[in-house]
Amino acid sequence: MCRFMLCPTVLGLLLASAVSLSSSAVILENGMPVLWVHTTGLVTDLPIQNGVLTPDPWHFLHRMSLYRLMIAATDPFMGSMGTNATDSPLWGLPLQLGWMLTSGRLADPTGATTCGLESGDTMCISTQSWWGCVNYYASALPFLSAAQQGFLGAGVQVQMQVPEGVTDYCTTYADCAAQYPDAMSTWDAFFQGLKSAAESELPENEKKDALLGLYWAAQMASTQASATCNAKQGHYSSAEVSFANSWQNSAEYVSAAHFHSNLENSAMFITPLPSRVLQATDSAPNIADLSQEENHTLSIFSWMSSVNSLLGGTLVRLWKSAMCSVSTRERGREMLGQLLLNPSFATNTFLSIITGMTTSC
Rank of each mutant, 00 (worst) to 15 (best):
I353P: 02
L141A: 13
A154D: 14
I71Q: 10
W99R: 06
D188G: 06
G165A: 05
A210G: 08
V43E: 03
G356H: 08
Q149V: 04
G132V: 02
T86I: 03
Y215L: 11
F350I: 04
N295F: 05
A197K: 01
N342H: 09
S139G: 11
L351S: 10
A25N: 02
S344F: 13
A239W: 04
T44L: 10
S283L: 12
L101P: 04
A177M: 04
T271R: 14
H296P: 09
M70F: 04
M335L: 15
S185F: 07
V43M: 06
I71P: 00
H258Q: 10
T358C: 03
L310D: 14
W130H: 11
A256N: 03
S145P: 08
L339R: 03
S238L: 09
N230C: 00
L61E: 06
L90M: 13
S22T: 02
P274F: 04
E294G: 09
T40K: 03
R68A: 13
Y136A: 05
D87Q: 05
K208M: 11
M100F: 12
V326H: 11
K320D: 02
T186D: 08
G165Q: 02
T349V: 09
P8R: 03
C133D: 00
W58R: 05
I270P: 04
N205M: 14
A267K: 02
L273K: 11
G98S: 15
T328S: 15
N135W: 01
A16K: 13
S119T: 12
A140T: 04
L6R: 02
T83R: 14
A256W: 06
I287G: 02
V10H: 08
Q49W: 11
L11V: 15
C2G: 12
Q192S: 14
T86Y: 12
Y215N: 07
L11I: 14
M304Y: 01
N249T: 11
